[in-house]
Every structure is written in C-alpha cells, then in structure tokens.
C-alpha cells in the first residue's frame, strides 16, 4: 500500500515533531536551571558552611525581635514615628529636589537629542551620548565617588541622583519627542513660527503629560535611591536606619521601617493615580 501521504497526516506529523522539539527545549532549560540553582546553593554553602540551615532556624528571630521591641515600647512607639519624621522629610526633599532639577535639565537636553527637532546630526548624537554616559553611571557609584571628593553630606547625593535622573529621563523624553505628531509643528512653521515657538506650541503640549508621568515614576525611584545613599553618608532616614541597626534599637528600627513602607506604598499609589489621570489608558 504505497499511496501518497494524506496532507492532513503530513501536517499532523509536523505538529508532533514541533511539539517534540519544544518539549526537548523545555526539558533542557529546566535541567539547566535546576543545575545552576543547586550548584549555586552548594557553592554558597561551601563559601559559608551551614549558613542556609542555620539561617533558616533564625529566619524569624529578627522580625520577632522588632515586633517585640515595638510592642514593649507601648504607646511611646508612635512618638518615635514623629521623632524620625524630619529625617524622612529630608530624604524625600532630597529626592524631590534632585528629580525637579533633573527633570528641567532633561527636558532641554532631550529637545537637543531629538532628530525631528534638530537638523544637525552632530548636536543630536552629542546630546544622546551625553545622556548615555549620565545614565550608565549607577547613582551609588557616582555618589560614592562624590562623597569621597566632597566629604559627607547631602550635596554629593543630590548631584549623583540629579545627574542620573537627567540621563534616565532624557532618554525617555527624547523618545517621546521623536514619536510625537509633527503635523502641528509643520502648521506652525507654515505660519512663520520660530524654533522655540514650534517647540512650545507644537511639541510640548503633546509630550508634557507623558513627561510628567515619567517624572513621577522617577520620583518614586529616587526616594528609594536617596534612602540607600543615606546609608553611605548622605544623611536622612537611611543614615538613621543604619545607626539604629548598629545600635540594635529595635523600636526605632521598626519605626523607621514603618515610615519607609508607608512612604513607598503611598508614593506607589499616588504615582499610579496621577499617571492614570495624566495619560489615561497609555501603559508605560
């Protein structure tokens, strides 16, 4: 019986073959994953013998200590929230100010990094490279270097976050500007508008809502960053947390953590709300 194969059979055959290769790939990647994970755990165990099992026993010790400490402090614990609020304010203000400065610089730099607004390829690529360089330095590295050069304080952290924000926002902004509708700009040009007038009335009204929503997202990131920079000497709530941890003041640690969690969660909700208001259905 050597009849020509039924096309449906050929198709089914091919499907089966595809399913087989896919299953094989899945199996291989799961195997590789399991291998990496187990060898990673063994590697870590060999670095620091018995740390996983010992750590698992003590897993809840510290959180329990924190809660017990806060409980023992009684109503006075709520006073600690007030005590650390000024430090939190400093951290938030550091983030807010550096985001504001970064936002302003990024708006102007991004205009020069957009090929639909600037004819000169030189200026565009120079601005883009500037943004790339600013973005590629992590805040922590930049802040550490500046802290070393300028001494401890908020200023090095401010500059570090500022520069990183310019890089991060500038790239997003210039992408937004390059994707905007050029028809209003052409209309303005035909009416004899200059460069700045075209940008002001043709481009900015289109992109500003997007700019603000990116900016608010960045503010949220920068609050976390300025907390972290407090750890390495920029002051604020991060430094307070570090000090209290090294002194083992459980109620204070608990109060600071509570403040941070409240702030970050509130900012998270606020930024989602404001972004929905600003840009409606567009997802970032």
């Amino acid at each position: 019986m050597t009849t020509t194969a039924n096309p449906v059979d050929i198709y089914l055959e091919r499907l089966h073959a595809q399913a087989k290769t896919r299953a094989l790939y899945t199996l291989i990647s799961i195997g590789a994953m399991v291998f990496v994970i187990t060898s990673g755990v063994f590697f870590a165990e060999s670095q620091n013998a018995g740390s996983l099992s010992r750590g698992m026993d003590q897993f809840w010790d510290f959180p329990v200590d924190l809660f017990v400490g806060a409980w023992d402090a009684g109503w006075g614990w709520f006073g600690l929230l007030g005590k650390h609020a000024p430090e939190l304010f400093r951290t938030i203000n550091l983030a807010l100010f550096s985001t504001a400065l970064g936002f302003i610089c990024a708006v102007f730099l991004s205009l020069f990094a957009s090929s639909n607004l600037i004819a000169s390829g030189w200026v565009v690529s120079f601005s883009r490279r500037t943004l790339d360089v600013l973005r590629s330095f992590p805040e922590l590295v930049l802040a550490m270097a500046l802290l070393f050069l300028m001494g401890k304080g908020e200023l090095p952290a401010l500059i570090a976050i500022w520069l990183h924000t310019v890089g991060a926002l500038g790239k997003l902004f210039s992408e937004a500007v390059e994707n905007c509708d050029m028809k209003p700009v052409e209309g303005l040009q035909s009416a004899g508008a200059g460069w700045w007038q075209r940008v002001r009335f043709g481009v900015l009204p289109q992109v500003l809502p997007l700019f603000f929503s990116y900016g608010i997202l960045r503010l949220e990131i920068n609050v976390r960053a300025s907390t972290i920079l407090g750890f390495v000497g920029a002051g604020g709530i991060g430094e307070a947390l570090k000090t209290n941890i090294s002194w083992s003041f459980e109620p204070d640690i608990m109060a600071i953590m509570a403040l941070l969690v409240i702030t970050i969660t509130a900012l998270d909700y606020l930024s989602t709300y404001v972004r929905n208001k600003l840009i409606g259905g567009i997802r970032l």
Partner: peptide, 21 residues
C-alpha cells in the same frame, strides 16, 4: 513590594550573614 529590597536584605542579614542567601 512595599518593603524595599534594601529593608528585606537588612532583615535577612541577621539570619544569614553577608552572602548569597
């Protein structure tokens, strides 16, 4: 999500010490 990664790491630092875990 609300407890920052940094805070989690400080909590686990007590149990596991500096290292991978």
């Amino acid at each position: 999500r609300g407890i920052d990664m940094l805070i989690w790491s400080l909590i686990f630092l007590r149990a596991f010490g500096p290292g991978l875990f």
